[in-house]
Design a protein around this nucleic acid. Structure first.
Lengths: 357, 357
DNA sequence: CTGTTAGCGCATTCAG
DNA sequence: CTGAATGCGCTAACAG
């Protein structure tokens, strides 16, 4: 456990290990122990050049014996790389983000890059700072999930390093965007209800405001609209309410909807959180699901499978997106070609949608 | 936007800005621009010594003009500090962890330290690697949430840097552990049911296995047991089932419980996830909540308020714990005293528990 | 193949 | 108060 080579002993005498609170093994130490120069040590670790097998082995042994850990600061300073890719999300706690993170971890697993996570908590100021800490750490690549930053800034970033933007489309920048086809998903959800014989289908949307950079809500809404139009049905404004993706707003929205008095037999809600609120609202009113109203959500939140009755919903392939994003970053770092597909969401049919026949 | 001082021009001529893909402003540059030496620049940023106000101002101006960002690698290499605290969790996606992270972000907000997140995904091997990436980045402090590492390793870490362990008690190391009083919470949940007139109270526990380092499940169970004993009731083995904290296991557990045929009017479930499963199982059997069986969960997961009926549950003060942990780390870094309380959980009473009177 | 050397950007002595 | 000089640990030419 105690190395007695010249360098180490010198360290001991200078009391260096005392001051620096930590005896950190450096290539200096293992060079000494292996009887080679530090460059050779560096070489075997980066195999940046041929090294005689015997020396190579000696270095490896010494490194193992001393439990060497490279100093990333030194490496980064000297090489300009950090061997890490930054991941910025909006809310660690959501199932969608969590799945993406899982995918990224897996995707980076066999590379030399480590993920560095930061979270914006849906607040622009926090997101800004989080992004800054990532950049300050000189991440070599960036995976941004639903970033709220301006398109300009994003393009600027992309010029400096590999980047992947998830869940948002930046115009003229589609090459770097990985998204789910929300339009298609909305269309299919609605089509499904139509096929089951429903004609009066209400919709609770997500946040639609023009200024919003994320178009998920608008796309789902458009899909709903077009599905109706395609079978000759005119979307009824009275059957449409804008929510804000949060549970509470689902509860409010269903109240609004019911108070308008316009009858409907099915309801497509833009996400499961709001669907939870809706479900509670319907329950309070004594309206049965799916007997009185068919309900379909979006996101396949873990608990949606356990709602009563189980909610029919749409699953975004989060984990897969994470690993695709990671792979794309690695390819960019490697100057290899890459492409980001538009993912398609999957309709998860559970018992809560019942035919009105 | 373009600095024309000697240093910068030299950089331009050497083509340095071209090779290094990025024109990074260094103290060199701002020293030149402000007409001082780099040491002076360094001094004003660290106010490690008095600097004449005029020069100080000049430096600040130059820094602002050039949009200077210190190179953390260089700083870290030279100072031995990273100005960051590592945060290791088991699952970003859970509400409890998410709350803690929120608290940590807030707690670190006004310090010079930035959080660095890593996640173990409940897998020891991943946790190990995550911890390693944190250490490799030379974090100055460590907040570990429900770590599975050996007590030895944790103590070893604590010797090298400030540390806070959340949700786990390491023997002889309580000073660094921040926990919720699960025993008390379990006791009170059960007591509440007793007070409402229930005498046959079943319990679905979390993971109890001896080897488990986390004692949350066992503590909640003990609280349940003692609450019964204290009113002269003998815990009935037939009314106790071990689950694994996951939704699915709640569904299985309630099936097991019902199949035993032993009657009960109330049920305390060790977490909300399992309670969701239970709720579904009861629904399928046509058993009403709370009319037939009173239900109480644990964790106050977001959707528990929207279950049908809303689940009575217990809230752990996650966010508060996060900021307390952050504060404790900062104090340790500052060599100031600190203490980590045992937090007490809060019983959130909703409609799912009804008196039998 | 291998050792020597020069920085990477900054903090920190050490002399003024 | 302030500038010059040294070194943190490592990579990347540069000469053998």
């Amino acid at each position: 456990m105690q190395c007695l080579c010249e360098t180490c002993v010198a360290d001991l005498n200078t009391g260096k290990t005392m001051t620096t609170q930590q005896k950190h093994v450096t290539i200096q130490h293992i060079a000494e122990r292996a009887g080679v120069s530090i460059s050779t040590v560096s070489r075997v670790f980066n195999d940046s050049a041929g090294v005689k097998e015997s020396k190579r082995q000696a270095v490896m042994d010494a490194a193992a014996a001393l439990d060497y850990r490279p100093n990333l600061f030194a490496q980064g300073l000297a090489s300009g790389q950090s061997m890490s890719v930054g991941v910025l999300t909006q809310n660690f706690g959501s199932a969608f983000y969590d799945g993406i993170l899982r995918g990224i971890i897996a995707g980076l697993d066999n590379s030399n890059y480590a993920p560095l996570f930061a979270d914006g908590r849906w607040r622009l100021d926090i997101e800004e700072r989080a992004l800054q800490t990532l950049l300050d750490r000189r991440v070599d690549g960036l995976i941004l999930v639903g970033p709220q930053q301006s398109a300009d800034l994003l393009k600027q970033l992309a010029q400096k390093m590999p980047i992947v933007i998830i869940s948002r489309i930046v115009e003229g920048f589609e090459k770097f965007c990985l998204t789910v086809d929300n339009y298609d998903a909305g269309y299919r959800a609605t089509k499904y209800l139509l096929d089951r014989g429903h004609h009066q289908i209400a919709h609770i949307t997500g946040v639609l405001s023009e200024s919003r950079v994320l178009r998920d809500a608008a796309d789902r809404f458009a899909g709903y609209r077009d599905a109706l139009l395609d079978v000759g049905l005119e979307p009824d404004p009275d059957l449409i309410v804008e929510g804000n993706f949060r549970t509470q707003s689902g509860l409010l929205a269903i109240e609004t909807l019911l108070s308008r008095g316009r009858p409907f037999s099915a309801l497509f809600v833009a996400n499961d959180q709001m669907a939870s609120g809706v479900r509670l609202g319907l329950y309070r009113r004594g309206i049965r699901v799916p007997d009185d109203i068919a309900l379909i959500g979006f996101d396949d939140q873990p608990h949606s499978a356990y709602m009563i009755p189980p909610l029919t919903t749409i699953r975004q392939p989060a984990e897969e997106m994470g690993s695709i994003a990671a792979e794309a970053i690695l390819n960019q770092l490697d100057d290899k070609p890459f492409s980001l597909p538009t993912m398609s969401a999957e309709l998860i049919i559970r018992e809560s949608v019942k035919s009105i026949y």
